[in-house]
Amino acid sequence: MAGASGFLGTRLVARFTADGHQVTRLVRRPPRTPDERQWNPSAAQLDPAVVADADAVVNLAGAGVGDRRWNDEYRQLIRSSRVDSTTTLAITIAGLPAQDRPKTLLNSSAVGWYGDTGDRAVEEDAPAGEGFLSDVCRVWEAATRPAEDADVRVVRLRIGLPLHRDGGMLKPQLLPMRLGVSGKLGGGRQWWPCVSMVDFLNAVAFVLEREDVAGPVNMVGAAPVTNAEFTKELARQLHRPAIMPIPALALKIVLGGFSVEALSSSRVLPGALARAGFTYRHPDLPSALHSALTA
């Protein structure tokens, strides 16, 4: 697994380990534990023997899109950290003898593929949208092609907004909400493709085992909600008011380029998961938020 130390990666390692899998973590620094192997994706360096020993490869590597204000340098890091890691893994896998290749590559992508969909609901067959993150997702997903051409099953995980109190898009909202100084973002009409962390982890484990699932898979909840609905339900569960909407201009000042994404609408549906028969533990926002706040 690449990206094993991140917000999603640490939880996925724990889940896979609990399921009885042995996880080897790819790290850029010298290894510190027996389950680590060093690589340098920015220089396309990875010992082929590392992936030759694997049944599957999972790639979650990439700089956080909401971690810093976007300037030209950070935009390039967002792009290169994803494309370089994916390219290195896909080419290394493809270069192995057929009998030594992992059977599966689960490679992260994002619902940013679709751009701003407004009120239009989209599934996996929708084309890429417009904007910076859509462009990143387009080249990011294309970088998996060498593995796919080598007859490796490739699943492109178009990840939405997994909910957990310790990270992601939920954590930075908790303190302002508890202080009573929060509210909907902008007009609040934008759709958010939220999913409980439990369901996200279950969905990754599900597609890992389902050999008939390949291509893009929207890793989102059973139904998207608007930002206004999300904010109202979060306030209810925290027993706090949500009476201070955050104007779009303020978001632009604080977040810079990322404000465009925070205010964009992603009405993304889990078409592939639904067709494959995936069952949600938390199919609605109240149960997903309750899990996120109490787990």
Rank of each mutant, 00 (worst) to 15 (best):
L185D: 10
M1Y: 04
L157M: 15
L89A: 04
W113F: 07
I78K: 14
L289C: 02
F206Y: 11
S80C: 10
G221Q: 10
L89P: 06
A214Y: 03
C137G: 09
N59S: 05
E130D: 15
Q173F: 08
A121Q: 11
L163S: 03
L46H: 00
T17K: 15
R32Y: 00
L289E: 12
K171Y: 00
E229S: 02
A203Q: 12
R178F: 01
L89M: 03
E148F: 02
A63L: 03
D135F: 04
V204A: 04
T86G: 00
E123L: 11
L12N: 15
V207E: 03
G66S: 12
S264E: 07
L251P: 15
A222S: 02
V254R: 03
R267E: 09
V260S: 14
A272E: 15
N40H: 08
G277T: 02
L133G: 03
I246P: 05
L89R: 01
V65Q: 12
L255G: 15
R75D: 02
A128V: 15
D116F: 10
G257F: 09
V181A: 05
A223E: 08
Q22V: 13
S259V: 01
R210V: 02
R15G: 02
D149L: 09
S109M: 12
P162D: 11
I91C: 09
R153C: 14
V213A: 04
D149P: 07
A248C: 01
A90M: 01
L201C: 11
L174D: 01
A205M: 06
H282I: 06
A14M: 03
A276I: 08
A203W: 13
F278P: 08
V217Q: 11
R145N: 01
M177D: 05
G257Q: 13
L157N: 13
P127I: 12
G131A: 12
A54F: 00
N40V: 02
R275C: 06
T231W: 15
D53M: 01
I243K: 14
A61P: 07
Y74R: 10
A52N: 03
D35H: 01
S134G: 11
V207Y: 05
G257E: 12
C137V: 06
L249I: 15
P102E: 07
A43V: 01
Q173R: 15
L175T: 04
Q99K: 09
A52D: 10
L96P: 09
L234F: 03
G277Y: 04
K103T: 14
D53R: 15
V58M: 12
M169Q: 14
A94S: 08
